[in-house]
């Protein structure tokens, strides 16, 4: 997994509440498009007209937001389906960080599995960043410093955020959960040995 340390990039505001993972990527793209191409289908119904042409007014179709690495989102971003394809589609587009007041729980966890950083900030702070990024593209440039847990705006303002220590280390070192868990094999085997006596009906 790619390490996440310092990210500098354009932040695109998409301030609609309850953007669900069905909206982020449609089910037929999850099933019918290879993972590495799913970015092409990110937010399909919002980015394209029915005839397949782009909606020029949609934020991710406009420069410089088209090349955004950071998404500013509203409440409950990534709610709904557990499809990890939502993270793959966002990353396939080039996004590496989503900042929102709240997230769908499953989506939030799926981000960390792929080296993507979801950041929770107060709604008023996200709205302020979004308004700034939209009003002047120069203010859309943000720096996300994971080590210091600070977002630095183009004007030099610093905004603190928090990432749980274990998750922060895994992101910074590009560590994968499976690799770590395999080191606990002795404990897994011990659990099953005693469990077999306690709940024998699970092992028949």
């Amino acid at each position: 997994m790619e390490k996440f340390t310092l990210l500098q990039g354009i932040a695109a505001p998409l301030m609609l509440p309850n953007i669900d993972t069905d909206r982020i990527i449609r089910i037929e793209r999850c099933a019918g498009v290879p993972r590495e191409r799913q970015g092409e289908y990110l937010l399909e119904t919002m980015r394209f007209n029915a005839d397949g042409s782009e909606k020029p007014e949609f934020i991710l179709n406009k420069p410089p937001y088209r090349g955004a690495k950071i998404l500013l989102a509203a409440e409950n971003f990534g709610c709904g389906s557990s499809r990890e394809n939502a993270v793959w589609a966002l990353m396939g587009w080039g996004l590496k960080c989503v900042i929102a007041p709240s997230f769908g729980d499953i989506f939030f966890g799926n981000c960390f599995q792929n080296g993507m950083l979801p950041i929770r900030l107060a709604a008023a702070t996200v709205e302020r960043l979004a308004a700034g990024a939209e009003a002047d593209a120069r203010d859309a440039l943000l720096t996300v410093d994971l080590e210091r847990q600070r977002i630095v705006t183009a004007k030099g303002e610093e905004i603190a955020f928090e990432v749980e220590a274990l998750r922060r280390t895994m992101l910074q070192e590009g560590l994968d959960e499976i690799g770590i868990t395999l080191r606990h094999e002795t404990e897994i085997a011990a659990f099953q040995r005693s469990d077999r006596d306690a709940r024998p009906w699970l092992y028949t």
């Binding site: 990890e84 799926n110 599995q113 499976i178 868990t181 395999l182």
Partner: peptide, 13 residues
Amino acid sequence: GASEGVHVLATQT
């Protein structure tokens, strides 16, 4: 998610 699915297959945890 999918990554956790692989994790469960590999480790039963």
